[in-house]
Nucleic acid binder design. Structure first.
Lengths: 193, 193, 193, 193
DNA sequence: TATGAATGAGTGTTCATTCAT
DNA sequence: TATGAATGAACACTCATTCAT
C-alpha cells in the first residue's frame, strides 16, 4: 500500500467493502467515496477512472497474496511440499478474508473485458510461481518429466479457483482449509485408484 | 428449441451472434432485435426481460452440449474412457463453435450475479454427468475409493474450464483438441512421476 | 419545420423559449424536455446530441428568416430599394420575435467554436443574398464599381448585427424598425456631409 | 499593469496564452496557474473568481489598445483623418497580436453573459472615442449634420468588428491592414456610385 | 503571501421496458 | 401477435473554489 497516502488506502479498503456488500454493479463511485470518508472528487486525485480503483484493489490485495505465498513456498524444498503450501496459502488467505474472496471470485469477474485483461496481468507472477513449483518437481524427478507446464499450471490453478468459487457461492458454509489435503492428493496422484 | 415459435429461435441465434461480435456490454436489446429481424417490443413477447434471452441462449446451447456429451459417454463402459470422452467432447464442441466459446467463457461472465446463478443452474446436469463418471470409477475401483466426489468434479471441471478460457483468451491460436490426452493423463495420474 | 414530426417542432420551440428565458448555460436538456412536454430520452430520438438542438433551432428559424427576406428583396428592382428591404426585413423580423433575437444575438454566441462554425454555415445563404444586392448595385452602376464585395457585405452585415445586438442589450427599449431609414442612408451615402 | 505585483502580470499573460492555445472552454484555472508558474490557490489572492482573470485580461489589453488609438487620433485634426487612423489602429494592433485577436474576436465571446457585460464596460471608452470622431466631423461639417451618433458609431464599430472576426476565422490568410483604405472609403462615402 | 490537496455540485446520454395502435 | 415511439431512472467525471499549513 502506497505510504504517506492514507486516502489511497482508505479508498482501496472502502472499495473492497462496498463491492463485497453491494455487488460490483451497485458500487457507484459516490458510494465508495462515502464509505472511504472522502469526497467524490477526491477519488479522482488518486485514480484516473473508476476501473482504476478496481485494478488497484486487485493489485494491492494480490500483491500481498502473492508475496505471502511466495515466501511460504520458499521455505519448502520439495515440490510436493511446495504444492501443498501453495494450496494451503491460496485457500487460507481467501478463507481469512471473505470479503476479498467474494470480490475476486465473483464480483470482479463481472467487469468488462478490458478490465479483466488488466486483472489477468496482475495474476501473471502468481502463475509464474506455480510454474516454478512444477519445474522444481520435474527437476527433482518427483513430477512427471513429460508434463506440459502451462497445462499443469492450468489444472492446478483451475482446480483451486473452481473450488474457492464454489465455496463462495455456497456462502462459506464449510471449512475451505480442510480441503487442502484432499485437493493436494488429487493433484499429485490423480483420480486413479 | 421451442417449436412453432420461429421468432424464438431467431432471437436466440441473433443473441449469440450479437454477443460474440459486439461483446456483452454492447449487446443492447435493440441490436439483438435488429439482427433477429423483429421489433424491439417483439422480444418481450417471448422473454420477460433481457436476462431471460441470455439464460435461454445458455439453456438451448448447453442443452445440446450436455446431450451430445451424455450420449457419447454412455457408449463407454470404463470410467477411464468416459473421462476421456468427457474431455474430448468438452474441448471439441467448443473448438467447433468458437462464437459460442467466446460467449460462454468470456462474455456471459460479465453478466450480473443473478444471471450467473441462473446460468449455473443450467450447468447442473452437466456437473451431475461428471459426478456419474467419478462414481462409476469408484464403483469399478479404478478411481480411488476415498474420493470426495464434489471436489473431484471441481478439479475436472475447473481444469477443463480454465484450459478452454485460456485458449479463448489466446485467440484460439493452438489446437484445443490435441490437449485432450495430456489433460486426461494429468487428471487420471496426477503430477507425480 | 419537418412535417409529421410534431415532437420535433415542440422541442425546437421549447428550446427557443428556454434559452431566451434561462440563458444558454442554464438550458439543460431536461429543462427543454420538460418545456416541450416530452421525456428527456425523447430528445435523443430527434437530435443526436444537445448541440444538434441548437443548430436545428438556428436552421429552422434562419431558414424562414432568409426565405422571407429573399422573397421580399426579389420584389424590388433597384439595389437601393433591395438594400432598404434587406435592412427592414432584418430589423422587423427580429423585432417581432424578441425571444429569437435574444437567442441569436446573445445566447447562441456563448456556444463553443464548433457549434458556432455550424451556425455560420447556416448563415451562408444570407450572406450570399447580401452579395447579390451589392452585385446588382454594381451592375446597375448605382453602387461604386470598385466595391470589394465581401468587404461591402461585412459592412452591411456587421452594421445591422451590431445595431440589433445593441437593441437587445438595451432590452428592446426603442423601436428598432424606425432605424431602418437612417441606417439605409448611412450605408448608401456614408458619413460624409 | 499593476506594479510591484509581478504575479498579477504573469497570470494575465498566462491567461492570454492559454486561451489562445486551448480555447476558452479548455482554459481551466489550473492550466492558467501552471502556465503562470504559480499554485492554483495563488490565483485567488489576485482575482476573486475565474471571470475576474478574463475581465482583467481584457482591461489590461484593451487599456493599451484604447490608449494607443486615442493618442494616434489626437494627432489628426480632421474627422476624416481621425476615422482613417481609428480603422488603421484597430486593424494594425490586432494584426500585430494574433493571439489577442483570437481571444477577443472568438474565445471571449463564448463566455457567459455576465462576463460579456463586464467586457462591454471595458469597451465603453473606446466607443466614446468613436463618438468623439463623429462629433468632430459633424462640428467640422464634413460629416452629415443629421447623423444619429450612436447609430453611426454602431456602423463604424460593427463594420470593423465583423471584418476582424472574418479575418480571424479565415485564419489570418490575408493582410488586414490593406483593408484600411477601402473600409475607410466605404464608411465615408457609402455604397453609392 | 503562497501552496495544493480536498471538496461536492452539476448534467448529458443510454437503454431496458412499456403500451397504444 | 407485432410494432416502434416514448419513457425516465441512473451515474461517472470535471473543475472552480476553499482552507489548513
Amino acid at each position: 500500500m502506497k505510504r504517506n497516502k492514507p486516502k489511497y488506502g482508505q479508498i482501496i479498503e472502502a472499495a473492497v467493502q462496498v463491492i463485497a456488500e453491494n455487488g460490483y454493479h451497485s458500487s457507484q463511485v459516490s458510494k465508495i467515496a462515502r464509505q472511504a470518508g472522502v469526497a467524490d472528487g477526491t477519488i479522482y486525485l488518486y485514480f484516473k477512472k473508476k476501473e482504476d480503483i478496481l485494478v488497484s484493489v486487485f493489485e494491492e490485495k494480490m500483491g500481498d497474496f502473492i508475496e505471502h505465498t511466495s515466501k511460504a513456498i520458499k521455505k519448502q524444498r520439495q515440490a510436493h511440499d511446495q504444492l501443498r503450501t501453495l494450496i494451503e496459502m491460496h485457500f487460507s488467505q481467501l478463507a481469512e478474508n471473505k470479503h476479498l474472496a467474494v470480490v475476486t471470485q465473483l464480483e470482479l469477474r463481472q467487469s468488462n473485458l478490458e478490465l479483466r485483461f488488466q486483472i489477468n496481468d496482475v495474476l501473471t507472477p502468481y502463475l509464474q510461481l506455480i510454474d516454478g513449483v512444477i519445474q522444481t518437481g520435474i527437476d527433482e524427478k518427483t513430477f512427471k518429466g513429460n508434463l506440459h507446464i502451462p497445462l499443469a499450471r492450468q489444472m492446478i490453478f483451475g482446480t483451486m479457483d473452481e473450488i474457492v468459487t464454489t465455496w463462495v457461492v455456497k456462502e462459506h458454509k464449510y471449512n475451505l482449509v480442510e480441503l487442502v489435503d484432499p485437493v493436494h492428493d488429487m493433484l499429485i496422484d490423480g483420480l486413479r485408484a
